[in-house]
Amino acid sequence: MRTCAESFAGYFLRPLGRDYGERLLPRGLEITFCDQAFLIAGGLLWNIYFAGLAILFGFFLATGVALAKFSENPWLNRPAAGFVFVFRGSPLFIQFFFFYSAFVLLPRVGVEIPLGFTTLTLHTSALTTAQVGALFVLILNTTAYSAELFYGALRAIPKGDLEAADAYGMTGFSRFRRIIWPNMLRLAWPSYTNEVIFLTHSTTLVFLSAFPARQQSGEAFYYARYFVDQTFNPFVAYPLVGFYFILLTLAIIGASGLVNIHLNRHLPRPQRARIRFRPQYLR
């Protein structure tokens, strides 16, 4: 039997790859509770990687898409609305399958784009790995959902604030940066928190769909499922992964609450919307 310290040394960083711990995952009767606890906890690193990067890129893209959808120019708002419709209307699980089967069809050597003076080679083989391909899908997905939230917030910006900006002679980018953007974020923040939680939860689907887990390095739920398959006992690994996700959710809510206070700092206290553990189910 392994001791807990051995489990920690052998498996906590194992999700990063074979070089960071034991070569093989624990199997059969030799699985201890500590193995499960540490391997699943280590898997969370990938959940944080997927969710963190998807949110980071998705946030800025979503601002752009929301502005495009809100614009009165049909050349901008039609494509933006179409993009949001497609990615919000179809299941993420199917999107993973669709994009993976599209990515494997790309030529392995890369796609060459002639630019006249030089040729740009896009290396496409990385797209079939979860770390790049699935992240790409997650970014598009969260962009669509967040864009819809931001679009709703843009429509709800108080008229008085816009008139005040006009009265001060603000136009263009400074009007956007000082008035529109902070207001949009403030109004969308509670539901955006909800979207961040949902996205973090959906990172569990990455390795369940088509994307392969190379060298058995996967995220937390991949390992939980592995342990249940090995021990045929769902009462340890699944509650463990559930517990970790509750901690992660609470951390997101805590961080988002701090941001929310910052965004609403100019308002009198009772008007501030609070971030709570019981948000609306907006997905």
């Binding site: 939860h201 569990t204 739920f221 699944y238 996700f245 509750i246 019981r278």
Partner: peptide
């Protein structure tokens, strides 16, 4: 309500059938 909300739904989709079956 809060438990289901805090945990990814896929955990329950795989947990409930096997736990209930057993």
């Amino acid at each position: 309500v809060n438990l289901v909300r805090g945990v990814p739904d896929i955990v329950f989709f795989l947990f409930v059938p096997i736990a209930l079956g057993q």
